[in-house]
């Protein structure tokens, strides 16, 4: 009994919805802190961001967290679809006149629609950035232009803090393997590792002469959708887990509202900053 009670019952579905949802809230905070480096990168924002991207794709602890995140997104979505389907079936004949606005807030009634939009956003977002970072054969490596003996020369930045002249690669003395490793062409030994230039990808994406503006606007809209989803979801998760105490309810509610405004807002500022203010 207990097994099915913790997996299949109506209440259990809500526990999982709440737990995965709250975990994804934590993910949002982590992701936001990472993204904010695009705004405040210090002396060399691109290197800082690419170092961060390297850390996020290679650190084993982050790996575990990222798999947990993929799982949470999938589970949250599938569970949400099952809930929406069952709830639809629970009232086969609809009301001729219904005034739900008199007893509920808009966001709470539209979680499935909002969630679906967020899922669409996540997929496109992963195609635009995540998949390029993970699979793109032509993922650029970070280069820097240095004045050497009166001549401007391009160098690859390497993870050991050094530089590798791009000319060596162009002339075939050094080859790039596995998208980011520099190999000595003759000896066929790995000599250095480059930084995949996620910073460049991101800036070019939002500064694209034709699609940059629309991409930025769609991003902002997606964050507004996320805000509404969080507006109901955050507090709702606590209720689902049985946390409802008059002493803390206002705290949870107000924190949830603040969270649902601040987090999407900070996310949305980044593409707008890149598109309108960042000097390429």
């Amino acid at each position: 009994m207990a097994k099915s009670a913790l997996l299949k019952s109506s209440i259990a579905k809500k526990y999982w919805m709440a737990l995965t949802g709250l975990f994804l809230c934590l993910f949002l905070v982590g992701h936001l802190i990472g993204n904010l480096q695009l705004l405040y990168g210090g002396e060399n924002p691109s290197l800082r961001f690419n170092e961060y991207a390297l850390f996020m794709t290679t650190n084993p602890a982050i790996k575990i967290l990222s798999y947990l995140t993929y799982f949470s997104i999938l589970f949250h979505a599938v569970d949400g679809i099952v809930l929406a389907y069952q709830n639809q079936k629970a009232r086969p004949v609809k009301y001729a006149k219904n005034r739900p606005e008199t007893n509920t807030v808009w966001a709470s009634r539209n979680m499935a629609v909002l969630g679906t939009l967020i899922l669409v956003f996540i997929v496109t977002h992963m195609v635009n950035f995540w998949s390029r970072m993970h699979f793109d054969k032509n993922m650029p490596l970070q280069t820097v232009e240095i004045n050497a003996g009166g001549m401007k020369q391009l160098f690859y930045l390497t993870t050991d803090g050094g530089y590798l002249p791009k000319a060596q690669v162009d002339q075939g003395m050094v080859v790039i393997k596995d998208r980011k490793y520099f190999y000595d062409a003759q000896a066929n030994v790995k000599i250095k590792e480059g930084y995949m230039d996620l910073y460049k990808i991101t800036v070019e994406f939002f500064k694209h002469p034709r699609y940059g503006l629309i991409a930025s606007i769609l991003y902002v809209i997606a964050m507004a959708v996320l805000g509404f989803h969080l507006y109901h979801g955050f507090g709702s998760a606590f209720q689902s887990l049985g946390i409802n105490n008059p002493r803390y309810n206002m705290l949870i509610k107000n924190f949830g509202i603040a969270f649902s405004i601040v987090v999407p807002l900070l996310f949305a500022i980044i593409p707008l900053y890149i598109h309108f203010f960042l000097k390429a």
Binding site: S9, I11, A90, S108
Partner: peptide, 18 residues
């Protein structure tokens, strides 16, 4: 009671508060 509630075909709670 929850088992019976689910069997009877009621929907799931989404905390709308209506």
């Amino acid at each position: 009671m929850v088992k019976k509630m689910d069997e009877e075909g009621f929907g799931n709670c989404t905390n709308t508060g209506a």
